[in-house]
């Protein structure tokens, strides 16, 4: 019995099946879009990033190890794509709070979406590494191990980033410093101060 089992493992490695891969990839599209949207807020830009990532994943399909974690694999591709675009053209395209608000308002009632927008802005104020960590762990349902693989860092690093992100978001949300009419620059200055305090708290 044992010998048979061993045999199966050895003689039947998971073979790459293109049709199956395509189905699995298609099933992940909603998650790719959600991860991209959580990272950048702007729905149009997020979908562009997600589409680029989808195409890259498809073109790289022969490098995917069958049986390994496709979600983590595609998220890694999306993350690389996101930061590559962000480095190139972020300032020119991304900071459009109105767009972000519209996309969120469309999804739920006005009262609730107002609070989601607060959190949305809070996310925007986090450092990149903290934002991605809290999205991966707190929203996408991935494990610390998977998140560490995606972000190419140690599990402990992810844990500490998530913890810092949580504390920073709490400080930001607690301050309630979100008057939509407020001067953006002043608000960002204030947030800078708050984040430094939050960091100090997290480190201490």
């Amino acid at each position: 019995m044992n010998a048979t089992k061993d045999n199966i493992v050895e003689t039947k490695p998971v073979e790459f099946n293109e049709e199956e891969f395509k189905q699995d990839l298609t099933a992940l599209i909603p998650h790719l879009r959600a991860f991209a949207r959580s990272l950048c807020g702007n729905a149009t830009l997020a979908d562009d990033v997600a589409q680029d990532a989808l195409l890259k994943a498809w073109n790289a399909r022969e490098r995917f190890i069958p049986g390994s974690n496709l979600k983590a694999w595609t998220f890694t591709i999306l993350r690389n794509q996101f930061y590559s675009i962000k480095r190139r053209s972020w300032r020119a395209t991304s900071l459009e709070p109105e767009v972000a608000e519209q996309t969120i308002v469309a999804n739920s009632d006005a009262e609730q979406s107002m609070h989601l927008n607060d959190l949305r802005r809070g996310l925007d104020m986090l450092q990149d590494d903290q934002r991605e960590a809290i999205i991966l762990i707190g929203a996408s349902g991935l494990s610390y191990e998977e998140a560490a693989e995606i972000c190419d860092c140690a599990v402990g690093t992810i844990k500490s980033r998530v913890s810092r992100a949580r504390k920073a978001l709490e400080v930001i949300m607690e301050s309630g410093n979100f008057d939509s009419d407020a001067d953006e620059v002043r608000a960002i200055d204030a947030m800078d101060t708050i984040l430094k305090e939050a960091d100090a708290i997290a480190e201490g």
Binding site: P30, R33, R37, L119, I135, A139, R166
Partner: peptide, 17 residues
């Protein structure tokens, strides 16, 4: 915060592709 974070994410997951 945790609930809203998941909601932001899930709202997009539940959108038609």
């Amino acid at each position: 915060i945790g609930k809203n974070l998941r909601e932001i994410y899930d709202n997009v997951v539940n959108e038609p592709v």
